[in-house]
Design a binder for these strands. Structure first.
Lengths: 197, 197
DNA sequence: GTCTATATAAGGATAGAC
DNA sequence: GTCTATCCTTATATAGAC
């Protein structure tokens, strides 16, 4: 394995464990079994190192989401598939929502917001899909923006509030993961109830 | 106005604007028109200053939530009231969710988690209320934990993703606030759809 | 490419005069 | 109580030898 790969792998692990802020360049270096200066030699800065790790994930995740909404099925089915895909993804890379939330809410990071594909690639097909089904009477009359915000919120929130949840219900990490796995079907039920005309 | 009050007011404003991490003691001092050393004289540390600001809000907010769930109405009505109260609250103090999320996900802050009233004061009446109505057939069979997580997520998420939202839909701050105001009724509809037997 | 050693910067905290 | 000046710590980043 090349040094660069070793760094990327170590960085991913540390970012998952500690989040962007909590992650220390020293820890990444230790885990990669190289030395701190090498991180900067290869990636120049923490920001750029993270961006590489982030982009590796984003590169295949966003197209996958886009894929869900370009399929030839109903809006309800698409949303159900979205929930499944999204929760699995966050379960694997729980640091991503934290990073996105942190970054978009930091001043001076407007360019990051603009690079996210939501506005240009994701939102249009999602809303189109809703309006098409709406005209055919296949879906209840709701506000699609409010609805999409709700679904994303339902998926993400338990990961953000995880420590409270684990404390309140004495959950081991595996139990939390299992709860999220069960959550997929629960959310599908909610979605159907909301969207069935 | 006493120096202490001036500091608390300035601190609140800065924490709202910049979040806990983004807030600078210097900025708080500038706004309070006193000097940085005074902050430490009065509150010893940034953590303790924040805790005061946070506790001032928590002190009346959590009891208010508890009040909703101790009322003598249906679970559905309680959840509707919760949504209204919660969104209004976050609209007023948008820094609170950020702070809670940040803090509970920081290692070494276990005591903060334990001090939150969710486990002991909030969760029991909420779930009791569900089970009572469930036995009477007043509410659909869902998983109350998953449901509560969903409702909180639906309320909070737009505030966390606000910059993306404002960018994607070209929203001015007043328009965002209005969208959140409209959101209250939209979420009430979702809740009814999910919970109606 | 890889290391050690050090610079740099930010920001919270404190000492000490008044 | 209030100020100025300064310290201390933490982490990122870089210089320069090998």
């Amino acid at each position: 394995m090349s040094t660069e790969e070793k760094i990327l792998e170590a960085a991913e692990a540390i970012f998952i464990k500690d989040g962007y802020d909590g992650a220390r360049m020293q820890d990444i270096a230790d885990r990669a079994e190289i030395n701190k200066a090498m991180l900067h030699y290869y990636f120049r800065s923490k920001d750029q190192l993270f961006e590489r790790v982030f982009n590796e994930k984003a590169k295949f995740f966003f197209p996958e989401i886009a894929g869900v909404f370009s399929k030839d099925n109903t809006f309800i089915e698409k949303m159900e598939e979205f929930v499944e895909l999204y929760i699995h993804f966050i379960n694997q890379y729980p640091f991503i929502p934290f990073f996105i939330i942190r970054t978009i809410n930091t001043s001076g990071k407007e360019s990051f917001i603009e690079k996210l594909p939501f506005k240009d690639s994701l939102a249009p097909p999602i809303f189109n899909s809703y309006f098409q089904d709406s005209q055919k009477g296949l879906v209840a009359e709701i506000n699609p923006l409010q609805f999409v915000l709700s679904v994303i919120g339902m998926c993400i929130f338990p990961f953000l509030g995880r420590p409270i949840l684990q404390h309140a219900f004495d959950l081991k990490p595996e139990q939390f993961t299992e709860l999220m796995e069960l959550r997929i079907n629960e959310l599908k039920i909610y979605i159907r109830k909301i969207l069935t005309p």
